[in-house]
Amino acid sequence: MVPTHYYLILSAVLFGLGAVAFVFKRNIITIFMSIELMLNAVNLAFVAFSQAFGKVEGQVFVLFVIVVAAAEAAVGLGIIILIQRNRQSLNIEKVNLLKL
């Protein structure tokens, strides 16, 4: 059986990689995908804990996280389409009208 902290370290590594992609990438869609990667890392931690404690509440919460991520992806991609339509570019440095 695989010890639980192996899963948690994998979750931390994936979260870190998602954070790196979030900070360093310039394409809006790729930034959005890194958010999904971070959510997945958190899901992995939830399921690992659910197995460790022997209760299924962790897995139920994972289902809710997946549903919320789906709703967020739908609305977020709608916003991204609007940004592309208004700014003709998917570069996040061009979306800086609120910058001082």
Binding site: N43, L44, V47, Q51, Q59, V62, I66, A69
Partner: peptide, 18 residues
């Protein structure tokens, strides 16, 4: 990995939905 942990329903929902 979810299948390895025995969370089969979550694994399939992950593939189908995500």
């Amino acid at each position: 990995l979810y299948l390895l942990m025995g969370a089969e329903f979550v694994a399939m929902v992950q593939i189908i939905v995500y």
